[in-house]
Design a protein around this nucleic acid. Structure first.
Lengths: 196, 196
DNA sequence: GACACTAAGACGAAATCTGTCTCAGTGTCA
DNA sequence: TGACACTGAGACAGATTTCGTCTTAGTGTC
């Protein structure tokens, strides 16, 4: 967002935590690993995240989610067609998820039971945040209750097709995604469409 | 070599150790990790490798080296031309090294100072083993002291160009390697060549 | 039944990690 | 100058993990 040349200490620590996770896996990372990777003393780290690893990883998850949607929004700029907007949304989101194995874990929660978290505990949070970010973009096309329902539906579908890819639909492929959206999504909301 | 359908326990353990190393990095792997990855009890592991991790990793290094040269030899079968033999040797070896980051570590020794080991402690061992495996293939073309010298020279060059790639020579590229060998290696040993 | 091999896990010792704390050094602001 | 906020370094005790050895019991083979 803002241009912080020296990069905030907190950001450095969280980035270091991410690097460590990617290198060793979340269950093998220690506070010391993160501190020295960030070039920061352990004391600073505890001052910044009282509660230790749990709090730190919570913050990291939060940052990951924000980064995720920030990147996503960048791919949606200037789109003024609902079908195109939704298509790009699912395609970009799917690409992000597939490219960053680590991201999927972070969006969810603890390791080991990644899938469990992604589908049980993690889902509501992701849907909530997705709504927060994406609904405003859909608002021009749909009245509020409908846009929220649409975004939730899409979020669920993206995650479902990510976890269990289908032979018939590939959300990573723009054409396939567009066809899906044109066929199943748009018609369902056609009645509410705001004709501008 | 021999067809062992159930795969020996020792092999299973070493393979498990390799898997664990690739997943977590050598410094984060515990005996327990390896044991459970191999589906073997810790006691068995200690019986098999008295001395623990050190002995186990020594054995792993040995296996890696043997596998390395076994794969290498497979690429050299039936070659009856010295230039072609040497070319394939450096190309295959270079590919193996580049494709398997883990292999380079194993061929050397402890992690952290991989390069230090690869160039200081590791080099003599690799050269020794390389000689053991490759010299017999060169024997038909050169008298013994020359063939040993040739193999040692090649081993040093492969490792050097692997560690510090050059703009002028690419041992991963067959044409480039062949040109290099034709220009710099063969002539140096031309006088000793056994004309069959 | 003797034998070789194994899994499971108890055990104490050693090593590592955690979380809190103190102390000293730095830069900022008034 | 002094109050203030922030930091690195590291001591410290306690929790946790890991290590290496050991015992016990189970299995298959001869």
């Amino acid at each position: 967002m803002s241009p912080q040349p020296p990069l905030s200490t907190e950001r450095r620590v969280l980035d270091a935590a991410k690097v460590c996770c990617e290198r060793w896996g979340i269950e093998k990372v220690t506070i010391d690993d993160i501190a020295s990777e960030a070039g920061v003393s352990r004391a600073t780290l505890y001052r910044m995240f009282p509660g230790g690893k749990d709090v730190l990883f919570d913050a990291l998850r939060l940052q990951e989610i924000e980064d995720f949607f920030t990147r996503l929004l960048a791919h949606l700029e200037g789109v003024d067609d609902l079908e195109e907007l939704l298509t790009r949304t699912v395609v970009s989101a799917t690409h992000e998820l597939r490219n960053d194995q680590h991201l999927a874990v972070m969006l969810a929660s603890e390791p080991g039971d990644t899938l469990g978290q992604l589908t049980v505990d993690g889902l509501p949070r992701i849907i909530r945040v997705a709504t927060l970010f994406i609904v405003p973009l859909v608002d021009p096309f749909l009245p509020r209750p409908e846009s929220a329902r649409l975004v939730e539906l899409l979020a669920r579908l993206v995650i479902s097709y990510f976890l269990a890819p289908s032979d018939h639909v590939d959300f990573a492929d723009a054409d396939s995604a567009r066809l899906f959206i044109r066929t199943f999504i748009i018609p369902a909301f056609a009645a509410s469409l705001i004709r501008s």
